[in-house]
């Protein structure tokens, strides 16, 4: 299986993102058991230590938890937590950059908002 990861960013972060995505899009519901580190390592051909590190990130944030001898499970309220985290990231990564770029192009905030509204209406011209 080819490696569907961006090789410029640490893989363990991308692993964590991927599990988060699966929780956000309801592939995993709360209290569901998720893929094991071994399975993940096998599926994507990634060193198990890296996978464990990625999962560890989520355990630390309380998004998943370990049931001894059984495996990893999605915590209650995980989806909320992820959404909160992603909203913050949405702001810093996308909104801030969007406005910076708009400023470079000499666009006002109203121009930007108007553009967003137009896109939402499906009216591109």
């Amino acid at each position: 299986m080819p490696i569907p990861f961006d090789e410029n960013r640490p893989i363990f972060q991308q692993i964590a993102d991927r599990i988060e995505d699966d929780i956000l899009n309801d592939t995993y519901a709360e209290e569901d058991q998720i893929i094991s580190t071994t399975q993940f390592s096998r599926m994507f051909q990634i060193n198990p230590a890296t996978v464990v590190k990625g999962f560890g990130l989520l355990v630390n944030e309380g998004i998943i938890y370990k049931k001894r001898g059984l495996g990893m499970y999605v915590s209650a309220g995980a989806k909320e937590k992820i959404m909160g985290k992603r909203r913050e990231r949405f702001y810093s990564d996308l909104v801030v950059k969007l406005l910076e770029e708009a400023e470079k192009l000499g666009m006002t905030m109203e121009d930007v908002i108007e553009m967003i509204k137009r896109e939402k209406r499906g009216d591109r011209t």
Binding site: M1, T38, S41, R42, Q45, I46, N47, P48
Partner: peptide, 10 residues
């Protein structure tokens, strides 16, 4: 090969 290696290593 790399896949097998990882599997057996695990």
């Amino acid at each position: 090969f790399y896949r097998t290696l990882l599997e057996d290593y695990t």
